[in-house]
Every structure is written in C-alpha cells, then in structure tokens.
C-alpha cells in the first residue's frame, strides 16, 4: 500500500488519455522517416511502445505547459505517442520514487523541478537519491524568482528592503509557496547574506501566496517569474529585483539581487528538467536529450514562457548532471544554516 507499483500499468484513464492525444492535434502516426530512425545505434528497439512522461506536479502551471509542448516534440522524434502522467503529491517525491523504480529502457522519464533536489536535503526520508538513481537528460528551462513588495512598502530597491528589515527586525512578513519552495530558499539565502530577520509565511502554493501580497496582508514574496509577470505589469506589486545571476530579458530594467552590495553570486532559480532512471542506455538518453533541446528552441516556448521571464536552456546531460550536484550542495548548506529542516 505504501509503494506505488513500479511497473507501468495502463488503467482506463491512461488509456483514455492516450486515445485522446492520438485523436487530438498531436500527430501520433509515425512517418516513414521516423520509422527508419527507430533502431538505435546499439541495436535496441527504442521506442517500442508509448513513452511515459511522469510530471511531478498537478496539471496547470508552467510544468504542465512545458510537458504539453515538449510531448509533441518527443512524439515527432520518436514516432510514439507521449502519455503525460501527473503524479503530484509529497512534494514530487512520489513521482521521483516511481521514476527511480521504473524500467530503465528509455520509455519512462520524469519532468522534475527544483524540489526534486531540495527534497533530498530537506526531508529525512526521501525514497530516491536525485544523483545516484537517475540519468540526467536535459535542464529544459530555468525559472527565476522576482522579489516583489506590496506598493505600500517604502522600499524601492534591495538595499532599501535590507535597511528596512535591519531597522525593525521581524517587521516584514514574506510569503512563500510553501516550506522548501524555491521562494522560501530564496528568502533564507537573502536573510543569511544580509544578516536580516524577516517572518517567513508559507502558503499552499504560489497563487494564494502572491494574492496575499497583492492584498497587502504580507509585505513581500520571491515569486516565480512566469506567474508574477502579468501581476507586475498590472502594477499591483512593485518588483525590486530578479533572483537570477543576470538580468532577465523579460524585465530588462530590473536589477539582479546579485548586483546589490553584499549579495555577490546570489542566485536562486526554480527549474524544470528531464531525468530518466539511472540505468537508461546512453544512446537513448542522447536521443531524448536531442528531442528536448529541439523542443526548447521552439518559438511557442519562447512566446509562452520565455517572454514571461523563464530562461530556455536545453543543456547537455553532462551539464545538467553537474548542475544537479551543485544545487544539492548549495541547498544543503542554506538549509543547515537556516535551520529549516522540518524533521
């Protein structure tokens, strides 16, 4: 009962979804060219059945959008329909465990997010190891946060906010999408680097947290760029800085937090990337990587995510592997220093 079956099953809903996808806009019929491509260099038949993309979050939101845009690209590349399998829950740990234990034949892979690595240092019991149990495919997009404040807060810059927090410790309540979310860690690192003390107010999800700041109930939030973009444009909250190392093309006038004194090297970005079970054949990982990279370069993705503040990356498996290790080390330190382990 505690463990989700490791072997993929095809119950009614999955079958219905597969049928819907096949009937919908996504061309699921392989062309001759695609059929010719099917045999991989090492002679294994891949893919021999529909691909299963496990998504570590509920439908709706940027990861869903990414999954639905990358899905067709993978279908084009492989000639097999891609079934998107949402397994939200336990901060993505259910999806992680499921993928780690799936057959490593390249038919099952995970659309992971920043929590995939953060969980491994935040929680005592994590049913997978993000480095050892997985073969990285590609870091698809990186989604920085934007530090925004309610217009009634007198701070116009990061330096102002630090000064305000120093003058009255504990007077600024900062909302977040939840304990261990990228916004929470952005706040933790911000406090550690500036030596300030603010109140962390976790919510269930980024939407209600941002609404709380819009209503002026809490004063600030590190909110993911894609979600906050239209709210910032409407002038309901005042952006102070972005949490990426460099400025974002979507907010050219907005400085990076790292530009402020004392925040050198400050970088906290959420991300979405693809990983497969550890023993997935190298050649299949390469082909999945090529498909993801091509999908990331599609103009639709730039238009729907890039223009709202996401960075389209599409890295190699090696670069993504190094990134995952670096993230794990970084957050282990921040979480230890901030004393934010829940268990």
């Amino acid at each position: 009962m505690s463990r989700t079956p490791a072997r993929p099953r095809w119950p009614m809903r999955r079958a219905m979804m597969a049928a819907l996808y096949a009937a919908g806009a996504w061309g699921a019929t392989p062309t001759f060219a695609q059929l010719a491509l099917k045999a991989s260099p090492d002679g294994q038949a891949w893919p021999s059945r529909p691909l299963r993309m496990i998504v570590a979050s509920a439908p709706g939101g940027p990861s869903d959008l990414l999954a639905r845009l990358v899905g067709p690209a993978l279908t084009d590349a492989s000639g097999q329909p891609v079934v998107i399998d949402h397994r939200s829950g336990a901060n993505g740990m259910i999806a992680g465990e499921l993928t780690a234990k799936a057959d490593a034949d390249g038919h099952t892979f995970l659309l992971a997010n920043a929590g995939f690595v953060i969980n491994s240092v935040l929680y005592a019991k994590v049913p997978y190891d993000p480095i050892r149990d997985f073969a990285p495919i590609s870091l698809a997009i990186s989604v920085p946060n934007v530090l925004v404040v309610h217009p009634s807060v007198p701070a116009k810059s990061v330096a102002d906010l630090v000064a305000l927090a120093r003058a009255k410790p504990g007077s600024i309540a900062v909302a977040s999408a939840g304990t261990g979310s990228s916004g929470h860690l952005a706040l933790a690192l911000f406090q550690q680097l500036s030596g300030t003390e603010m109140i962390h107010v976790p919510f269930k999800g980024g939407g209600p947290a941002l609404a709380d700041v819009m209503g002026g109930q809490t004063q600030a939030i590190f909110s993911i760029s894609v979600t906050s973009y239209p709210i910032i444009k409407s002038g309901r909250v005042r952006p102070l800085a972005v949490t990426s190392l460099k400025r974002l093309s979507a907010f050219p006038d907005l400085p990076a937090v790292a530009e402020s004194a004392g925040f050198k090297g400050y970088e906290v970005t959420g991300w979405f990337g693809f990983v497969a079970p550890a023993k997935t054949p190298r050649s299949v990982v390469q082909r999945l990587n090529a498909a993801v990279v091509r999908a990331v370069q599609m103009p639709e993705l730039q238009e729907r995510l890039g223009n709202q503040g996401a960075e389209l990356v599409g890295s190699t498996p090696e670069v993504f592997g190094t990134y995952l290790k670096a993230e794990q080390a970084k957050w282990a330190k921040v979480i230890r220093q901030g004393g934010i382990k829940p268990e």
């Binding site: 439908p59 709706g60 959008l65 238009e303 729907r304």
Partner: peptide, 27 residues
C-alpha cells in the same frame, strides 16, 4: 481580474490560457 486562480480548476483554466499563448492576468 487578478490572474490568481482560486481553485485547482481555475489553475487549469489559467494553464489552458497559457497553452493558447495568452498570458493570463488582469490585462
């Protein structure tokens, strides 16, 4: 009016808008 989904269903509707290439929100 705010671009903030009040429920899981509304989050899906906003997601659908994004898939259609429309940045959801007050504008």
């Amino acid at each position: 009016t705010l671009g903030i989904p009040g429920s899981g269903t509304m989050a899906l509707m906003l997601g659908a808008l994004m898939i259609q290439g429309i940045a959801p929100g007050p504008q």
